[in-house]
Design a protein around this nucleic acid. Structure first.
Lengths: 220, 220
DNA sequence: CATGTTTTTGGGTTCGACATAAATTTGGGC
DNA sequence: GCCCAAATTTATGTCGAACCCAAAAACATG
């Protein structure tokens, strides 16, 4: 069915691949500029194509959904929690790892937890389509985390503990993300918001401590 | 601006109002039949209008979004958790009330927690648009719960405890809803699924006990 | 530089969402 | 009963995203 050509994905970046990346990036950048200037819904695919000097279909080929043009961090976002858990230290619980990493992300002002500047944040908040897409990302992220936790804890097949724990941990992130967005949209400056977020994170994660402090502690 | 005619909205259901409800229901029923028979995306608004013998625009007037034709339980669903908390007994915590009500809903085989029959459930699962809409309902439900909890606990303005608690409680419901859907799609019969759901609910809510057993206990 | 593959292009279709005005129906006052 | 004003339904038309297909252009490889 899937034929392996003479050259399965090996090294060579190749000119073709290079130009693809450039084209993709150029389209994405062009689109983002337009979205920020006039709002997501107000910009048409045709306009983006014209501005990027490619055919409409080329835009669609790279970004099957219009939302993808604005939210191009899917992989990064969706995998973040599962990755943190997978890479936690021996003796560290999932909760501890996620809290530690969240606080580090606050320090970094990481876009992945919601630090994205008022324009970009506003673009998302103003758009139902983008908001919906982000909601989907949150769900996928939680599902990825649940899967990771199931493996890490060697949970039995019918056991819903991993999903329950992932819902709590993912929920904490979701709530904190929303708070970051709220503060950004309220015009609060980044440093001030970051301070408040760190405090809020202590509280929100602390709230989970009674249930999760002993869950998914890495053994080796 | 808004002029009050001789008769502001008073009592009488009125013939006009009655026919509106009938029309609305007829359209919704027609649409649901078509969706179940051929899938959500495969049915066009024009077809629904033709089958219900009304104009396309009439369908759109009653149901601004196509998804609304299939998911017409928004109010019920979104308000359910907040309502349960609002009506809990004196001395009962939010967690206890929600668990009690969830188990009662399992006994009722309530569609609101996911008991909807394989056809209907399949229709939703197969459709990205309906899945997205349902996701939105979950979020609105959690937000409504958070608001209710904030009032019930007289939380201070910057305090995120209500949101955090709502995320945990709403998360539990979301996870259990997903499990109901999963079992339904796996072909499991309703009674068997209900039994498993009751057990799962005990576990999932029990998992929250350490954090939430003492939260939002009704005082008067 | 010839050949085969991948990417881009251009043209076209479908359908949901939305706007507007015309036609129809209803509720009441008289 | 009759007619008016308000509300509802209908008829038309626009716009844009998603999708399909075949032809042309760009690239990789021997």
């Amino acid at each position: 069915m899937a034929k392996e050509p003479t050259t399965p994905p090996r090294q060579p970046p190749g000119l073709r691949e290079l130009k693809k990346q450039q084209t993709r990036q150029a389209i994405s950048d062009t689109a983002t500029d337009l979205f920020l200037a006039r709002g997501f819904e107000a910009v048409t695919i045709a306009e983006i194509a014209a501005a990027a000097q490619v055919a409409k279909m080329t835009v669609t080929n790279y970004f099957p959904r219009k939302e993808d043009l604005a939210l191009d961090l899917r992989e990064e976002f969706v995998g973040s929690l599962a990755r943190t858990v997978a890479e936690r230290a021996v003796g560290e619980s999932a909760l501890a790892a996620l809290r530690r990493e969240f606080l580090a992300a606050v320090e970094r002002r990481d876009p992945v937890i919601g630090f994205a500047g008022p324009e970009f944040t506003g673009m998302i908040v103003e758009s139902p389509a983008l908001t919906a897409r982000l909601r989907e990302f949150h769900e996928l992220r939680e599902a990825a985390l649940a899967e990771r936790l199931a493996e890490e804890t060697a949970a039995a097949d019918g056991d819903m503990t991993p999903q329950a724990a992932a819902a709590q941990l993912g929920g904490a992130h979701r709530v904190l993300f929303a708070e970051t967005v709220r503060r950004t949209m309220a015009g609060e400056d980044t440093d001030s918001a970051a301070g408040a977020l760190a405090t809020a994170a202590e509280r929100v994660f602390g709230f989970l401590e009674p249930s999760l402090a002993g869950y998914a502690i890495r053994e080796s």
